[in-house]
Structure formats: C-alpha cells, structure tokens
Nucleic acid binder design. Structure first.
Lengths: 215, 215
DNA sequence: GTCTATAAACAGATAGAC
DNA sequence: GTCTATCTGTTTATAGAC
C-alpha cells in the first residue's frame, strides 16, 4: 500500500517532468523550423526519447504545438497587465520596456514561435487575440489616454505606442542574425543591450514626457 | 525562317513570363509556410502548372527559394541607399519611413519571407548581410552621425535608430493578424495607415529634431 | 510506459512519351 | 515544353509485443 502510493506519486512526478521536457524540446524545434517544418522525430530526438514514446504523451503534432503555443502566449502577454494609471507614466512604461527587453533577451525561442504563429495568420490563437488580448489592450490604451488627459504624457496614439514597443522588442529578439551581421553584437552583449534599451526609452518614452515649465 | 524567329521570340517571352509567374507563386507559398513547410506541388498548383513542369524551370526547391529570396532582398534593402548627408534630416528620414511603410503595406509577402529567412538564421543570405548590408549600414550611420555632429539632429544611437525603423515597419507588415485582432484595422485602412505612420514619425524622427532657440 | 515494426500518406525529384 | 508515371525517401501515426 505504501509502495503503491509512493510509486504512483513518483510516476506522476516523472510524467509531469517528462511532459515539460517534451514541451521544452518542442519549443526548440518548432521555433526553429515552424509548425510544418518541424518533425516529430526531431522533437523526440531533442527530448531524448523515442518517437513512439512521444506519441504516447501527445496525441499528435497539432496537439503538441498548441500545448507549446499556449505556454508561450501566457508568458508573452502577462507583462502588459502591470500598467496601471496610478503609476508614474515614465516609470510604468519604462518598467514595461525593461520586462519586454528581458524576455527578448532570455526567451528568443518563445519570441520566434510567437512571431511564426502570427506570420502564418495565427490559426491556433486567433480567437484568443480577438478576445482576451483585445480586451487587455483596450484597458491599457485607456490607461495611457488617461495619462495624456491629465497632462502627464504628451499626446500620442496609445494603440500605436503599444504596437511600437511590441515591434522593437520583438525585432531585437527575432532578427538577431541581422543585428549580429551588421553590428557584430546581440542582446547578449551587455553594452549593446543597454544601448538598445536606452535608445528605445529615449524615443518611445522620454520623448513623451512633458517638460515642466517653470514660472 | 520568319516563323522560326517569331516562334523563338515568343517562346522566350513566354518563358520569361512563366518564370515570373512561378516566382510570384513561390513567393506566395514560401512566405506563408516557410521553406520547409512549402511544397513544390503547392507552388505548381498556385502557378497553375504541373509539378514536373515546375521542375523544368527550376532545378530544385532550394534553387527556387534562392531565386525568390534574391528578388525580395534587393527590393528590401534598396531604399536605405537614398539617405544622404546633404539632405535635411527630418525630410530624409521621413522619406525613408514613407518608403518603408509603403513596402510594408504593399508587399506583405516579401516582408514575411524576409522575416522568415532571418528568424531561421538567414542560412542563404548570411554572407550578403555580413557583406553589402553591413557596409551600407556603416555608410548610413555615418550620415546620421554627421547630422548629429552638425547639431541638425539630437544625439541618438544611429545604429539603433535604423534598427527601430526596421522593427516598426516590419512589425506592421508581419503582425497584421495581431493588429487586426486588437484594432480591427490594418495598413490597408487609410486612416489607420496615416495614424501609424504619423506616430512613427512623431516618436522616431520629430523627437530628434532640435528645437530652434531664438536669440 | 516504452519499444520495434509497419502502415499510409506525402514530398522531392526523375524517366520517358508526346 | 509539357505531360503521366514512377522511384525514393521521409513523415505522421498506429499496432502490438514486452
């Protein structure tokens, strides 16, 4: 009886660990070759298991893809939740840029997978985009517009400001090869990282902070 | 004799037209599914010809891909050449943004193909990036730095400014689905196009134009 | 849970008739 | 130049032994 319990707990733990192992391997392969370009064999190999064993854990290629994509999507959209109108605009937006740049540097695979899914028309997450993401963006553009009305931020299109932040962070992550080719550096280089982040803050945030006029 | 000449001219013309037709179809399919995800069958189908006929015009999948990619690469990097230090900074940079936004709107497939190639490590054009693109960027960062030294532009990292412009234009093109999902609009919508472009100019260019101080 | 073997479909590419 | 037929390898997915 004791043994059974212990064994079953162990198995559950192993199963969960193995699932995470598979998801990690799948992220690696899917983010490199895309959904169509990736093969289950390659994913199994990367995870260090057999192909048929992989099919034991996930019913099919699509199932596995959706599982990986869901994880990425959550991590990707979470940081925007932090923006609140009670905060100082420069601080809040600066913090958001910080977090997004961190993600761009530390999770290039997640970034690429997200981009690949978007570029193929987001067939698996279109409903989520039109649902919770749209709602989230509406809330946060309201926050930014609030700042503008209070004179704490210069007039700017809130929607396009958010898009610009997404564009830049996504680009530094997804176009590493191009950046590396023309500059020899990537976000992994500390001074390059600081320079990129500083330029983003200068252009996308500081330029929007009203200059206090003394009387 | 007359007939032969006419026939051969016709055939040449047809062959060229057909090659262009194939390249167009290939761009469509490659940009949607990526190199690995695309199939020669699908490309042939899109072009309205048989698979074996496609193999008559292009030796293999890679050959066709490189042909398409070369066309895109040329169109993609050409506009940057226009930047010259004799120009007015606001005008020159504004014009560059105009052209890049036009491309983003009118050539979403080329944009996507370029992005896909980058995201997969640019295996087919890495040498070009490290060669002529790097050289081009060095020339143009020099132009921007010249403007800054002359006090015609506020201090900013020239390299990262260029990267920011690339990031934004690429994003509006490649992430159309996301933009559409959250706003209901794309660059095809005139007012949305104007708003996006205006915001980019505000953040990436106008914020860098020195305010003339009267004495 | 994990393996070997294999089915079934599909992909890139070629041969050869017309 | 274009077609049909086909070869060859790869891919998703399953059956069944252990």
């Amino acid at each position: 009886m004791y043994d059974e319990t212990i064994t079953s707990v162990k198995k559950t733990r192993n199963a969960q660990q193995k699932q995470q192992l598979i998801l990690q391997a799948a992220l690696e392969v899917f983010s490199t070759y895309g959904l169509q370009g990736a093969s289950m064999e390659q994913i199994a190999e990367t995870a260090g298991i057999s192909k048929s064993n992989l099919f034991y854990y996930f019913a099919g290629k699509d199932d596995l893809y959706v599982a990986v994509l869901s994880q990425v999507l959550t991590a990707w959209l979470l940081p925007l939740n932090q923006l609140e109108k009670e905060q100082d605009p420069a601080q809040a937006l600066g913090n958001y840029l910080d977090v997004k740049f961190q993600l761009a540097k530390d999770s290039p695979q997640a970034s690429r997978l997200y981009a690949l899914e978007m570029m193929q028309g987001a067939p698996y997450i279109n409903t989520i985009l039109k649902g919770s993401l749209k709602k989230l963006v509406q809330q946060k553009t309201a926050v930014i517009n609030d700042w503008i009305e209070q004179g704490r931020l210069k007039p700017v299109s809130a929607l396009h400001l958010i898009i610009h932040i997404w564009a830049v962070t996504q680009h530094y992550s997804d176009f590493t090869v191009q950046t590396q080719a023309i500059s020899g550096k990537t976000l992994k280089n500390k001074s390059f990282y600081q320079e990129a982040l500083a330029t983003s803050k200068q252009l996308l945030i500081e330029s929007l902070i009203p200059t206090v006029v003394e009387h």
